[in-house]
Design a protein around this nucleic acid. Structure first.
Lengths: 169, 169
DNA sequence: GATTTTAGTTGCGAATCGCTACCTATAATG
DNA sequence: CATTATAGGTAGCGATTCGCAACTAAAATC
């Protein structure tokens, strides 16, 4: 597929790796549909409004990357099911983050349907960042550290918004 | 710009709203660079390897959407600074989710640099989903509910007033 | 004044997207 | 058994976007 397009640099960061699949247009919309229980080609098609060839391409790519699993139904061999794998399910936080952000800054109201706790039927909390001990933490309390500096107290590096030269890669 | 391309359906979900900006190729890579402290055109250019015209286009689009703020430096009026806004900073969880997912399934090792708590210099926890009361929750415990069904069924188990406070999503 | 730095813009070929039509295999129907 | 409907794709084609390289403009530096 992307022969000429230079591959995103994957040497030292997981983000380009994730974007190689999920950075494609429609990937997240298909993922959302899958999370909402859709499984069949025509369902994805009508739910997203994506073009047929693009949908076929994306489903193949998501399957190739192990995010969806393709299975032919044996009771009706015309039908194919695309189901989320564990790897795909682990993208739920990322999808929800984006969705919550869109709600907050674009939509202004909660999306529908709502993801709730099946114990009390209350919506999940906004997704946020937590320290290693589980305590919620905000951007101002965070720091970028080089890998081999981690845990060394007194390591001098940059706070958020201030970085010296650096190897951002 | 996108005249022919049908706008992503925004009626009832925040995800298409978010993807309108962040679904573009390179948007997340530029965001990551911004989180790492980069501010100038040429810095983004060399850090990401993106083409100049695309970078210009993306910076303009991110600025237009209020994710970055553009400011001309007064000590050197050639220079322009692109700095994250609060709206942009709120994309940090989404970026980290993707990055952590990429680390886990593609990279196999932690990315560099590492985001740490500035109190103990320990890396942040993996980002996950939490119930309204803050308890971590996994996919199997979740349920999609229509908006007007929220809280109705399980209302007996929690005190009054909890719902409105909790329902950011 | 000449050169360098910074932040772009322009032009062009290649790749991708979106739309519509078509195709193949299976299943349901008369 | 012949016909029709359904499910999941391909193929072709124009419109858009991407990536590369060259060029521009303004400000700073020598």
């Amino acid at each position: 597929m992307g022969k000429v397009r230079e591959r995103l640099d994957k040497e030292d960061c997981g983000l380009p790796v994730a974007l190689e699949v999920m950075g494609e247009r429609w990937s997240f919309m298909i993922l959302r549909a899958a999370f909402n229980g859709l499984r069949h080609f025509e369902d994805f098609l009508s739910a997203t409004g994506i073009a047929r060839n693009i949908l076929a391409n994306r489903l193949a790519k998501l399957t190739a990357h192990g995010i969806l699993e393709r299975a032919q139904m044996q009771d009706d061999r015309r039908k194919v099911e695309y189901v989320l794998t564990a790897k795909g399910i682990d993208l739920l936080p990322a999808m929800l983050c984006l969705r919550q952000w869109g709600e907050r800054y674009g939509l202004g109201v909660p999306s529908n349907p709502v993801l709730v706790d099946n114990r009390d039927y209350l919506p999940i909390a906004p997704i946020g960042i937590h320290a290693a001990d589980g305590r919620p933490i905000v951007y101002a309390e965070l720091l970028w550290l080089d890998q081999n500096e981690v845990g060394k107290v007194g390591a001098e590096c940059c706070g958020p918004g201030d970085l010296s030269a650096a190897s951002v890669r």
